[in-house]
Amino acid sequence: MKRFATLLACAAAFALPVAAVAEDAQGTVKKDSYRFLVVPKVVHPWFDKVNDGAQAAAAAIKAQTGSNVEVIYSAPQSADVVQQNQIIDSALATRPDGLALDLLDPSGNRASLEEAQNQKIPLVIFDSIPPEGMAIPYIGSDFCEQAKIAARRLVEVLGGNGEVAIMQGVPTAPNHSIRAKCHREVFAEHPGIKVVAEGIDNDSIETAQQQAAAIMQANPNLKGWVASDAAGPIGIGQAIVEAGKQGKVTLVGLDNLPEMLDMIREGVADSSSASQPELQGYWSVMLLWAQATGAKVPGYLDTGNAFLTKENVGG
């Protein structure tokens, strides 16, 4: 009996530190419920897809762990960094378990992000990059590669010759400005391609349509378009149809909004280089949840790009 007690005591002594280590190990702190906030750039169908992905991740975590996950989606009504900061600051007041953000301008959002870090609220940035010097995990596709896929396709369709235009999106948004820069880099490699105009649509379909219409009026020899945001190609497509230039002006679009897919099916657009917003929303919540449990997460997660043509978008 004494021997058994000694054995038990030894086993307990051995098990205790093991249990303690298990308790302290990464990703072992479990809560019954989590509340995550998703703040996109603006109210926009592309971000609705991000939200769909975020809600799917919440359902997956609930199914696998039993923890309730509430994802609150709060979007600025316009692509305005002041308004976005106001939403972020108000959201921080609710002490969420994590905050996923698509930054309108990393430098302009910096103060709000620093406040979140001071409050030790886990952060994830999607579809954008963190402000310089701030270590925040971020998720997205390779924006430059996405733009280059589109620009190369346009060059190929035009046979390496012709006047083209670029729609910039929100110039201060890093993903948009990176894409615009990479469009220019590809066109600069082809002497026969001349960029005759650049528009700014601020992620608004209506503005994109107006800008594209005016640019096509001013440049009657324009042969092709690329865009740096999801709203841009939809507005450009509308302008092409209204101007009766379908088949004369080639549009290589961006992303996979339903209107974009319709335009590819109808032949208004040749193709689209698409990021995958559902995956960005899904992995944003997964990384927030992982951080909330104490787990380490990667600094960058690439959700990849897809190239969409009439052949693969389906009926």
Binding site: V81, V82, N85, S107, G108, R110, P171, T172
Partner: peptide, 10 residues
Amino acid sequence: LGTAQPSIGD
């Protein structure tokens, strides 16, 4: 903001 944003005032 720590930056001069063109969208200030919109």
